[in-house]
Simulated scan of single mutants.
Amino acid sequence: MDTYATGNSRTGHYRRPGDYRTYCGRDSRTLLAHPDRMCQRCVKAEAADRAAATTVAEQHQDGASEKREAEAIAQKLTAKMRATLPAVAAAGSWSARIGLAHLPAGVTYPSLQALIRRGLIEEFETGETATDFRGRPYQVTHHRISAKGRAVLDALTQAGEECAAHASADRYITRQFPAVADLLDIEARQAAALVTEAEATDGTWRGEWIGENTTTTTPGLFPLDREQGALFA
């Protein structure tokens, strides 16, 4: 990090980012490459500032990593699990007593268990007890969406909003610029056809040998194409 001088002093100072003021509150515009000593106030303040910035950067990286993980999990959920997760969030928390099959609206037992296995719904106890049909006491289990589940729900919500925005844009283009919409549709179909052909011929004799040997210029009984190639040349 660059050091700066104040006045004629050989003491080095650190400047605040984006400012001419040093950490110790002085105005400094002169670089000092080899100071005799460092201002201790600047050294301590800069170290604290750097530590805070490092913490923020690490939190941002962790948040980005968690977001990517949530998006990956969201993509793997079935349609029923995607429909159940918002219902769980809306329900808050509820207890599951033995013999009672009441679940919040929109929550099905198979999807509930699947979301629990994925860590998107957590089970917890509050100390509440009940008695089973044999008269034995047991701890009542409660359910609620987990922090991981909320992150996945946010990812699902964002994906839904993006799909809606794309659909709205497509409808607008189709309505206002039909010629552009037709062109985009043609390009999309052509791109899909190229991908399909590439996948069909990749690693086959058709794609690797016949296609590479259609070099003859001698007229034949019928036109040569990629599928016929040199086989009929």
Rank of each mutant, 00 (worst) to 15 (best):
R206L: 14
T131L: 13
T108W: 00
H34Y: 10
S95Q: 12
T218F: 02
P17H: 02
A191R: 10
H13C: 13
D2Q: 14
R171H: 10
A200V: 08
A192E: 15
G25Y: 09
A48H: 12
F222V: 05
L85N: 05
A130E: 10
E46V: 00
H34I: 11
L103S: 04
S28R: 04
P35A: 03
A167L: 09
L224A: 14
A83V: 03
D49L: 07
R21G: 12
P110E: 09
M38H: 10
G92F: 02
Y109S: 13
L31G: 13
S28Y: 01
G220A: 12
T216G: 05
T216R: 04
W209Y: 07
R82S: 14
R134A: 09
A90Q: 02
A159D: 08
A164R: 11
D19R: 15
L156M: 12
T174P: 03
S28Q: 01
E187F: 07
A45I: 03
A72C: 07
K148Y: 00
S146R: 06
G92M: 04
L31C: 08
L103M: 09
R175F: 12
E125M: 10
Y20L: 13
A72Y: 07
E71F: 03
A130N: 14
T126L: 11
S146Q: 03
L156R: 06
T30W: 04
T30K: 13
A91C: 10
W209H: 05
T78K: 14
T217G: 03
E122S: 02
L77H: 12
A57T: 02
P178T: 06
V107K: 08
A192R: 12
S28H: 06
A147Q: 12
E69R: 07
N213W: 01
C42W: 03
T215L: 14
Y172D: 14
A5Q: 15
A101T: 04
E199P: 00
G119Q: 01
Y109E: 12
V107D: 00
A181W: 05
K148D: 08
R97Y: 06
C163L: 02
E227D: 10
R82V: 00
A45E: 12
N8F: 11
H166Y: 06
K148I: 00
G135R: 06
R136N: 04
T84E: 02
L120R: 01
T157W: 03
T84G: 06
I186C: 04
R144M: 01
N8Y: 11
L194D: 11
A79P: 00
L31A: 15
G220D: 08
A47N: 08
R97L: 08
A74N: 02
Q75H: 01
G92V: 03
A200Q: 14
A188P: 01
L231A: 15
S93C: 08
R82F: 00
I173K: 07
A233Q: 13
K80F: 09
A51H: 11
P86L: 08
M1E: 01
